[in-house]
Design a protein around this nucleic acid. Structure first.
Lengths: 142, 142
DNA sequence: CCGCTCTGTTTCATACGTGAAACAGTGTAC
DNA sequence: GTACACTGTTTCACGTATGAAACAGAGCGG
């Protein structure tokens, strides 16, 4: 199930980002629909992570979010030495979810900071993540 | 204004890039199909610019091309340069120093977390940094 | 209470992208 | 010749993403 070689488009992340920004701006689904030319129904499905959005719609929404494509369409394959791709090994084993949980659990942490850092971590992680699987101690040497 | 009605996915550019690299490597469609998990038929259609590929397939092929998503999705600029490097634009204006200052100022934040996150941010930032946000100038300039 | 207007969600028919397989060439060997 | 192994292209049944419209609910004014 956690086959990273198959699922390239992180629709869940996209959906959450959209909902977050939309609620932040107090916009309705139809408002965003008007702005992005993505129908409200499709928008709802995307926010709820149902199905896989069309490429055009993804692009439109990424544009609306002002979010880099790599954030959602990050593809890391485990093929050989492509030294061009930077790989970072994070201190301790940590996944975005774990970090986010940590930050969220830290009640003394200001919400903005927690959010920003969580988002930051996710960006960096999805970009640099070790090709192996999740929290396993297997880090691939280059 | 935000004429999002335009097609964001430049399939023609993608198709040409694939064909170019494929022929450069003297690979058959089925070879690339094996490498990318994209069927040869779909690959042929993409190379010929027929239809609009699935988001997953686009991501797989971008990965195979080692080409940034912006090249195909969103505002694409005409440029003969093939410099393909992953670029991440962090949300909001944030430099490692600013973030570190924030973390340091947040006294309620556990020191280890603060340190780890600060370090993490610096690593990610220096890796991905978009020094001038040079060529794009689309927005989010700094 | 009854409309009215907003919200997000969910049918529903349609459109289309998909991969397997069939097809059409093109060499190359025997 | 005619087999065989390739190539790229296209057909075909199927799955599914899509937007319009219908739906369910909340809030509000009359």
């Amino acid at each position: 199930m956690t086959d990273t070689t198959k699922s390239f488009v992180n629709t869940v992340e996209l959906g959450r980002a959209i909902r977050r920004k939309r609620e932040e701006l107090s916009l309705s689904l139809r408002d965003v629909a008007d702005e992005t030319s993505v129908s409200a129904s499709t928008l709802s499905r995307i926010e709820n992570g149902t199905g896989k959005p069309d490429a055009d719609n993804i692009a439109r929404l990424m544009n609306w979010l002002d979010m880099p494509m790599e954030r959602v369409m990050g593809a890391h394959r485990e093929d050989g030495d492509d030294s061009a791709k930077a790989v970072v090994y994070f201190p301790h084993e940590a996944t975005p979810d774990i970090v986010e949980a940590h930050l969220r659990a830290d009640r003394n942490l200001s919400p903005e900071t927690a959010k920003a850092l969580s988002e930051l971590f996710r960006v960096a992680y999805t970009q640099f993540s070790v090709p192996g699987s999740d929290t396993r101690g297997r880090n691939k040497r280059k």
